[in-house]
Amino acid sequence: MLARKNIIAILLGIELILNASALNFVAYSKFLAGNMDGQIFSLFIIVVAAAEAAVGLAIVIRFYQINESIHIDDAAQLQG
């Protein structure tokens, strides 16, 4: 099946990490600090993650249009 290392799969991984950290903030702010700052911070994490996903996927699509494959190694040269 899709054997090549798909860039979009990496973006999925990044989404997971951002979620994990946001959850951490909420948990610590509830059990340790007891104030709302943790929730505010994870709200902004969600905002940044959404913006990042939008731009990242735009780059991936543009990359695909240029050289037909989204194989991570093709993305080696910088000028693209």
């Binding site: 099946m1 899709l2 054997a3 090549r4 290392k5 798909n6 979009i8 799969a9 990496i10 991984g13 996927l57 991936v60 699509i61 695909y64 037909e68 494959s69 989204i70 194989h71």
Partner: peptide, 25 residues
């Protein structure tokens, strides 16, 4: 995005042989 980059089902011809390498190689 997956749809716009080849629908995610067509392994490119170049990589036909390495079929079994898991996705996040």
């Amino acid at each position: 995005a997956i749809m716009l980059t080849g629908g995610g089902r067509e392994p490119s011809e170049k990589m036909k042989l390495l079929m079994q390498v898991p996705l996040m190689g």
